[in-house]
Every structure is written in C-alpha cells, then in structure tokens.
Design a protein around this nucleic acid. Sequence first.
DNA 1: CGGGGTTCCTGGCCGC
DNA 2: TGCGGCCAGGAACCCC
Length: 273
Amino acid sequence: MPELPEVETVRRQIQPLVSGMAILDGWSHPSAKFASAPDAVGHRISGVSRRGKYLLFGLEPLAPSPGGRRELVVHLGMTGALFVDPGPPDDDYSRAWWMLEDGRHLWFRDVRRFGRTVVVPWGDHRSLPTLRDLGPEPFDPALTGATFHRALATSSRRVKTKLLSQRPIAGIGNIYADEALWRSGIHPGARRLGPERSERLLVHLRAVLGEALDHGGTTLRDYRTPDGGSGRNQHRLDCYGRSGQPCRSCGDLLTSRSIDQRTTTWCPTCQAR
DNA sequence: CGGGGTTCCTGGCCGC
DNA sequence: TGCGGCCAGGAACCCC
C-alpha cells in the first residue's frame, strides 16, 4: 500500500529511466480509471514529480498542438506498480502501457485496479478532487506546528480520519498514520488536538516518513519498486499490524478496531483518550 | 460544503 | 481439493 515514502521511492527510480523520452504508442485497460492513458501519445516526458501519493509525468507536445502541455497522473492505489521493460508487457494485470521512442515500454500493473492513470491538461486537476485540494507536502517548510494545528482544527472529525483525508497534510496512509499517532501518544479517535499535541504529531509524522524513505518504503504485500525491489521499512513498524502484541514502549497489548472503515491499531495505555 | 455511506477490485487465508 | 466468507483499503462518487 504505497504511501508517500513508497511513491517517492518509485519516482526516484523511474525519473531517470523515462525523462526526455517521446511516447509513440499507448494502450489502456477499458476501465474509466485508466482509459485516458493513451492521450499521452505524441508527447515527450519532461520530468516526473510527486504530490502526496500522486506521480505527475510532465508531457510536452512533440508538435505544436492546440491541446498544449499535458500531464500524466498516476496513483498506485493499493497494488499498483510501474515498470520499464524492453518490450510490451505480457501480464494479465497490466492496466496501461506507453511505448517510448527507443522501443522500451513504461507500464502500469495493478492487480486490484484501485489505482489510476489519467492524462489531463497540464496542472488541471479538476477531475481528481483529492489532488486538487491536497494539503501541504510534509517537508514543506511553510508547514509549521501552528499551520498544522489550524488545519486540524477546521473540523471535529477524528484525527485518524483527518490524516487520511490528505487535507491537513499530503501523503499519509493507514500505516504511517498509525505509526505517527503511536509515537505521539495520541488516540486515533481524538477529535480536538491542542497546539502542542498538533505540533508533536507533525514532528512524528515527519520522522516516520523520513525514516521510511531512508529504508526504501514499506513492503507488506504488493509494493514493488520499478527495479523489482522491496522496501525494508516493514521490519521497523512499531504499531501498524501489531494488534495483540506488546507495545514497544509500555509492554501492554496493542488493540485495534475499525475507525471510519479503516483498521486502526493503537496502545490503550500510551494513547489513552 | 462538510460529512457520511457506497463502490470499485482480486488474491490470500481460513474453516469445513 | 474445492469453495464460501471474509479481509486488505485510497479515493472517487453520490446524497443529504
């Protein structure tokens, strides 16, 4: 389940493989989630950037075109992965591919089809509301304890729900939400956080994401990098997936239940209400 | 417009 | 061995 550290790891690998390449052919699975992928044909990939969990491939037209610059937006969903191979993919779970000018193929594999490949006019994210309204990048210096506190204070939903909404901060999923809340000693169901707890949460979100990035991301099931590698951060999780096991801080047993349709694990002692 | 519920998907695992 | 039931879950989408 790729979150910011996994998506950034993919970006760093894929960027040098495809930047500067013209796209000469394309194909997509019929699902509406992938259908616009071939609209990238006839463009040159100017670079690969990332916002939250979204990968953004800049697309410059090969010839003057009324459409102008475009952007290929890729969301890996839960089981999505990007690869660059010599030939077209022969795989039941291919959802889109793009043939590059040197004959190699960039392709998107996604067993569960929770991901997306969308081509839009450059910067036009109206069809992707979560991207359009995405919160600040976690390491943006403009994001401070004070601004984070203010963003969290705009509603009385549970803090876990707000983190997963991508609005107060971008790129957080179920794993790093649980990890950061555990380190912060904050109950995932808390509805109002004061300035001090908000700042503490931001500090630990940054730490958890930074460490995961240093370890190539977390591979639990499907996450793979374009070179076929796995992350190493799964061995460093303190909370996520450890329900029933002893808390590494106090020794009491971690507990879990569904919060807003998400399995959530926490320590009832360290993260008391 | 915030908030809540629904939907998309299939492999892996479990019990019988 | 086969199979029904259940679980994993990010974000679009619909409705109030």
